[in-house]
Design a protein around this nucleic acid. Structure first.
Lengths: 311, 311
DNA sequence: AAAATGTTTTTTCACGATAAAAGACATTAC
DNA sequence: GTAATGTCTTTTATCGTGAAAAAACATTTT
């Protein structure tokens, strides 16, 4: 089957949404930049839009004939990249329980269960290994290290080290740096969210990532910036998984962020340090409380069929 | 061609060296553990040893008939794994010069030049990406970030953060921890090397890695331990590449290590911190001095054929 | 002539296939 | 009955192949 055309389908859907706003589409290169795809893909999109009567296309003229209808869109599930499909599938298994430290991961079986080739699974596992949750035995299988309390503690230890340093670097940035405008924008978004937290509390996770990435970037250190991928990934699944008291947790976090932002704006190293520490401490608590320590217990004779097999 | 049998060949060579020391070989499972391979591979090795008249093999009896001769060994270059071959080849290109920040890396061409399949190259690049020297453009090529001064500074910043913390944790380890014996052994090896530094200075890099890995392990943090892979990789190639004043540099480093070891043994946090800082500072200097800042300059019309192409 | 469109080439992504290596099961030896 | 050997099965490592997507080149339009 070689390669799915999800890049095309996803870009097509995004292009459809663009149609609502304008009378005619821009040039091919411009569309390419806008959608983040090559001109080859842009032309495929335009071809289909012409075929389905969405636009009239003649060279530079791309006139919108009608607005997009629901049936024009490709189904959501066809727009995901293989890597995303594998990651979701893998994480579901990992968090579903019954996946404990020490278990073996079987590439072939994982591939079969998800319905993809082994190569894609192998590449996924290699990429995923940097998150510290799995480990490769040379010439042999992968071993699951488990989403344990130890993992969470090690992760947060580094996070705190990195963020304290980044926050200090942030506060020391010159007055005319562009980051202060970014920070202002974030502050406004935080205030907006805070004022309607009862309804929009689930929008916090996106804001959270934006905020912390901005701070980490101030370190000007690629290892610190890259490490935030690990945190983001863990928190992403953590948010999906642990919905207990979500509203209240996020409400607290928004307030901590606002205090943290104020401290940064004051540019007082002591205040920054204190606000940063306070927020990181409660973030750690939140993460730790979501890890049931009792998960280690398991039926001793479990015929663990599936991807994760007893070692 | 599917898969080379380098695991077998490498294990065979190592097994040959074992032959020199004993009259008869141990059981198959035991040999497997000793060589770090499966019994399947052990049996292939024994088969060949029987065929070439090295041993007489009858079930449990594996009598050594003669010592190994040079022609019994497989050639060194056939014992390397594909991953090693690709890494060496890639690093040679990277350090050979003409490889600057911003250049594109072409999987297909790299694969052709090395004479391997694209899959292996892809997997190598994914694994290698965690070192922070290359970066992937989604759905497109890899970009070389370059072995620059900025890279070295970012690397050492993290290293210093991690090692200071690890060293402090090390010194706080209980008296009965096994690490103190490891440290004693390392101290002895350092003294031995110091006493004959004029001849054995090139043995330092191996000792260096052993020492720092021991310290990092005291952090009990997988991210810190794993990060040492980045440092080890960089220093590995750096040692091969920059031979200038190697003897003198290593001589200094050995003495710093000894002072560092003494500080750890004193378990005085202040002394540990000072000794660690001092050594890390000179390590950073060594690394920085080996990066010629002028490497940015390049002929403007360079027809950069090969793996790294102008962006 | 700068920037678009039209066309062709190259590269990336993903698969199935195959030999090497690991692992599991069955049998024999001590 | 434990631990080895002998045999068979499964998994991993690697390649070649082909479609999707990008990139390069050629031509037209403004």
């Amino acid at each position: 089957m070689s390669k799915s055309n999800n890049v095309y389908k996803d870009a097509f859907n995004r292009c459809l949404r663009l149609l609502d706003e304008t009378q005619s589409l821009p040039s091919e290169p411009e569309l390419g930049t806008l959608l983040g795809v090559s001109r080859t893909t842009v032309r495929s999109i335009l071809s289909r839009m012409e075929e389905t009567g969405l636009i009239a296309w003649n060279k530079r003229n791309k006139t919108v004939l009608r607005g997009p209808r629901p049936e024009d869109f490709f189904p959501e599930e066809e727009t995901d990249s293989l890597a995303e499909i594998i990651e979701r599938s893998f994480m579901r298994r990992l968090l579903a329980g019954g996946a404990e430290a020490g278990m073996q991961i079987n590439e072939l079986e994982l591939a079969r269960e998800i319905g993809v080739g082994t190569t894609s699974v192998r590449e996924f596992l290699i990429r995923f290994s940097r998150f510290g949750l799995i480990e490769k035995r040379r010439n042999s299988h992968w071993v699951l290290k488990g989403f344990t309390r130890a993992f969470a503690l090690e992760l947060t230890e580094i996070r705190e080290m990195f963020e304290l340093r980044s926050a200090a670097a942030f506060a020391a940035l010159p007055e005319d740096s562009a980051v202060w405008a970014d920070l202002d924008r974030l502050e406004i978004d935080h205030r907006r969210l805070a004022s309607d937290i009862a309804n929009r509390f689930n929008e916090f996770s996106e804001l959270d990532e934006r905020f912390h990435r901005l701070i980490h970037r101030a370190s000007h250190n690629r290892f610190i910036v890259d490490f935030y991928d690990v945190i983001a990934m863990i928190f992403h699944y953590h948010y999906q998984w642990n919905k207990a008291e979500e509203r209240q947790r996020n409400e607290v976090a928004v307030q901590e962020h606002l205090a943290y932002i104020a401290a940064l704006k004051s540019r007082d190293p002591g205040k920054v340090d204190a606000a940063c520490r306070k927020h990181l401490k409660s973030a750690r608590q939140t993460l730790l409380s979501s890890i049931p320590e009792g998960r280690q217990a398991q039926p001793a004779d479990g015929t663990l069929s599936g991807t994760f097999a007893r070692a």
